[in-house]
Write a protein that binds this DNA or RNA. Structure first.
Length: 865
RNA sequence: GCGAGAGUGGCGGAAUUGGCAGACGCACUGGACUUAGGAUCCAGCCCGCCUAAGCGGAUAGGGGUUCAAAUCCCCUCUCUCGCACCA
């Protein structure tokens, strides 16, 4: 005979029990099953830094709920996890602690894997991958060679962004307002031989598809569009006086060309020295150029900048007015954008205006606003709005926006210009002078030049016996046995490329590899598996990757498509960018930032001084405002941690950490557990109510709530990922269970209603609170695990109210309420409203103008004021 | 400066399409049970007037559209994020 005791909710034991079961039974393993609809859910994989942090917990919890929900909805769900395991921290750890990067990385992976398992995430661990393994990056090397053959990977000497602390080059996308995205060190410029990926080959497609990704947040698409920065304009030639050469400029404002009165050139531009050569100013120009080169980076990060310039004692000619234009070298024209030269129109560009004022240069108004008349003598700033062209020859009287085309045509017809398009996006520099990355599979031969490593010799394995001293320079370059090789072409002595690839290359295709993680035949991706799983249906990760990782991955996808390796245009159908986890900072006036437990009492743990509570900021190690997930799990369990992360805020918003919030989540689970235990003996052998029996009031109410909750939770998860409102709906259901009088133990129908309600609460909670619900489900006597149970359906009639409250307003103000049957006719509701006791009293002597009835909501009576 | 988004009780946040503002939770207050309560259960909880019923006010501030606005439009303020001389 079975005896049921009222058991206490003990999350740790329950969670460990189910996690073990999921692991040994491989519950979440999936294979391609064409009979089922697939759903590929992916969270951004982590860098194995040591331990998981709360940001991971939140990201992966959101993903796990969706994965489990879709599974219950009958989808074949691919939900993988892996490690973005190349990168600098491993190398820095090696220098600091004399531990090999691979050992450090793998130890971290093992630890973090345990932590993720402890959270109960439903990953198919058989698909786990780690990007620092040769079996992963060998394919990346193969792709590299393909890219090289097609001109999509090339080497070029160029000015690069260099971080002295990380001792390596950074891509443009990795520079954040002049500083290194990783360590915050100010970025300097260097000229180096670099490998580039020709992302610009796909620039138009990358831009076009920004309009074809309705499942992405607008914010991210806008950021990508701006980053690509496409602008239409003209390249115009300005002939040099005393020379047969011409200066070419790019402009989007050819409508203002008649107002161009001088020429500006970026100081770094080679033309500057060319023009100054042999002139009186040559020395001064040389000095100026040197000065600008030095100040350049600082200037970009500073808020105030001085517009400086130096006259080159040279002139060019305006191709439409014939007027001579003095030429200046300046510090505020970008050498890398357009042609590095700008035609200056001081009347209609604020920068040019300021410059003209400073150097007392001529100004001509060419756009006249509709409402006032501009006068160059009195103008205080440039006029940058629209208007009518003046002083513009045959174009006078035209709207300036319309003149854009006309003037472009004219310039083309006289051979002085042509329509062009400029982009802000540059090619992706992927060379890194570091050790812990995927080797670039190229060989330099003095005779044959750059030669790819033959495919048969792949992978080029990263050697393990390297010396990491931190002294600077590439550690690989110092390793003779790696560098010295033979040229595959001529057999002569040659040297290997010692740069490694940017780690963003690995993360640009890991989602493809997850589809066939063990494929070891060329090209490492099984087309059949990819065609089944790709694209990713839902991608979830931090907003910080809005440009970098997401743009690179889109590019890589299009490229692999053109190689015939995959069949999709875009990797991620839907994107959810979750907010950051924040917490207040704590500071001791003497000992600086404190960890939460060091200042928990309000006093510093060392000196007992009062703790200063600071701003709420993103959790970070440097501010010490971090919560250790281990601590949370140990005290409350993974289920509570999951509920809290979801309940406190909708996923896309920042989440402010609160200890009380955690208590509240824990209390809710306990409350659910207790009401279940209160009933379990009585309902264990009773089937949940399924028919449409007439029920008495409290039971009818209970049952209605049950079905309403299914409806609400389904919509909240399915359409909006609003888990916070889904959880509150389930809380309401549990509250209703508490409020419903306990049916007598021979009241079979009553208990069947309760069983239906309890069962529903458990099933609806299952994706969010997987361990506790499995346990309760089992205690209820079910043999099939909850993870295999289908998502419940709601009955529309049961969920609908029979009686509804209609609000009565007079002139939009709430005055009374009436209760009517759900199917009551509009006319009789209006009549009832007008007949309502309170309303009659208030309407006395008023003139009713109109009665508006909003079905099932309200009656608004409009009276004369 | 430009671009995008946001602003609702003491707090986190609700309010599918314009239709009862404040769901749910936290904190707080009171009560019950109790040797005890930091457990649990029940109740109260936007602000003002009032014992109460009731009345008035309130979604950053101001104006507008509408029978009706947190929601739509215009202006102002504040905050967050992104880009910052892109010609």
């Amino acid at each position: 005979m079975e005896i049921f005791l009222i058991m206490k909710y003990e999350p740790i034991a329950i969670e460990e029990k189910w996690q073990k079961k999921w692991e040994t039974e491989k519950t979440f393993k999936v294979t391609e099953d064409t009979a089922k609809k697939k759903y590929y859910l992916l969270e951004m994989f982590p860098y194995p830094s040591g331990k998981i942090h709360i940001g991971h917990v939140r990201n992966y919890t959101i993903g796990d709920v969706v994965a489990r929900y879709k599974r219950m909805k009958g989808f074949n769900v691919l939900h993988p996890m892996g490690w973005d395991s190349f990168g600098l921290p491993a190398e820095n750890a090696a220098i600091e602690h004399k531990i090999h990067p691979s050992k450090w990385t793998n130890e971290n992976i093992n630890h973090m894997k345990k932590q993720l398992k402890r959270m109960g995430f439903s990953y198919d661990w058989d698909r786990e991958l780690s990007t620092c393994e040769p079996k992963y990056y060998r394919w990346e090397q193969l792709f590299f060679i393909r890219m090289y053959e097609k001109g999509l990977a090339y080497k070029r000497r160029s000015m690069v962004n260099f971080c002295s602390k990380c001792d390596t080059v950074l891509a443009n996308e990795q520079v954040e307002s002049g500083a290194c995205w990783r360590c915050g060190t100010e970025v300097t410029e260097k000229i180096l031989e670099q490998w580039f990926f020709k992302i610009t080959a796909y620039i138009d497609e990358l831009l076009e598809y920004c309009d074809k990704l309705p499942g992405w947040p607008d914010r991210v698409l806008t950021m990508q569009r701006n980053w690509i920065g496409k602008s239409y304009g003209c390249e115009i030639s300005f002939p040099l006086i005393d020379s047969d050469k011409a200066i070419k400029v790019f402009t989007t404002r050819q409508d203002t060309i008649f107002g161009a009165t001088f020429m500006l050139i970026a100081a770094e531009h080679p033309l500057v020295m060319e023009l100054a050569k042999g002139k009186n100013v040559e020395k001064d120009v040389q000095q100026f150029v040197e000065k600008v080169k030095k100040q350049d980076k600082l200037m970009r990060t500073s808020e105030y900048y001085d517009k400086e310039g130096l006259f080159l004692e040279s002139y060019c000619q305006n191709p439409v007015t014939g007027k001579h234009m003095p030429i200046f070298a300046t510090n505020f024209v970008l050498a890398e954008y357009g042609t590095g030269c700008v035609m200056a129109v001081p009347t209609h560009d604020q920068r040019d205006f300021e410059f003209a004022q400073k150097f007392n240069l001529p100004m001509i108004v060419v756009i006249q606003p509709h409402n006032k008349t501009l006068n160059v003598e009195t103008m205080k700033e440039a006029y940058v709005e629209e208007g009518i062209l003046v002083h513009s020859g045959q174009f006078d009287g035209m709207e300036n926006m319309k003149a854009l085309d006309a003037i472009a045509d004219y310039l083309e017809s006289i051979g002085k210009g042509k329509r062009t398009i400029q982009y802000r996006l540059r090619d992706w520099g992927i060379s890194r002078q570091r050790y812990w990355g995927a080797p670039i599979p190229m060989i330099n031969c003095a005779k044959c030049g750059i030669v790819p490593v033959p495919e048969a010799e792949l992978p080029v394995v990263l050697p393990s016996d390297v010396v990491l001293s931190g002294a600077g320079g590439s550690p690989l370059a110092a390793l003779k046995i790696f560098v010295e090789t033979k040229c595959p072409k001529c057999g002569g002595p040659a040297s290997r490329e010692t740069d490694t690839m940017d780690t963003f290359v690995e993360s640009s295709w890991y989602f493809d590899r997850f589809c066939s993680p063990h494929c070891n035949t060329k090209p490492g991706l099984d087309r059949k598996a990819l065609d089944y799983w790709m694209p990713v249906d839902q991608y979830i990760g931090g907003i910080e990757h809005a440009i970098l990782h997401l743009l690179y991955s889109r590019f890589y996808t299009k490229m692999l498509r053109d190689f015939g390796i995959i069949g999709v245009d875009e990797p991620f159908l839907n994107l959810l960018t979750q907010g950051m986890v924040c917490k207040e900072t704590m500071k001791c006036p003497e000992h600086g930032y404190l960890f939460p437990e060091q200042g928990a009492s309000g006093k510093c743990h060392i000196c007992q001084k009062d703790v200063i509570i600071g701003k709420t900021e993103k959790m970070s190690k440097s501010l010490k405002n971090v919560i250790d997930p281990d601590y949370l799990i140990k005290n409350y369990g993974a289920d509570t941690a999951r509920v809290f992360c979801l309940f406190a805020a909708p996923p896309e918003k920042d989440l402010e950490w609160s200890d009380q919030g955690v208590d509240g989540s824990f209390r809710f689970l306990n409350r659910t557990w207790r009401i279940f235990m209160d009933y379990v003996d009585e309902i264990k052998n009773i089937a949940p109510l399924t028919g449409k029996e007439e029920l008495r009031d409290d039971l009818k109410n209970m049952r209605r709530k049950t079905h309403q909750t299914i409806r609400k939770v389904t919509i909240d998860i399915e359409d909006r990922f609003h888990f916070n409102t889904a959880i509150s709906a389930i809380m309401e259901l549990v509250n209703t269970l508490y409020q419903t009088p306990h049916p007598a133990n021979n009241d079979k129908i009553g208990l069947a209603v309760i069983r239906e309600a309890l069962e529903t609460a458990i099933i609806l909670l299952a994706p969010i609170v997987p361990h506790m619900t499995e346990e309760l489900w089992e205690i209820l006597g079910n043999k099939t695990p909850l993870s295999e149970v289908g998502w419940p359906m709601f009955d529309k009639t049961i969920a609908s109210e029979e009686e509804i409250t209609i609000v009565i307003q007079i002139n939009g103000k709430l005055r009374s309420r009436i209760t009517v049957a759900i199917d009551e006719e509009a006319e009789s509701i209006k009549a009832a409203a007008l007949a309502d006791e309170k309303i009659v009293a208030m309407l006395k002597g008023s003139n009713v103008l109109k009665v508006i009835y909003v079905p099932k909501k309200l009656v608004n009576i409009v009276v004369a004021q």
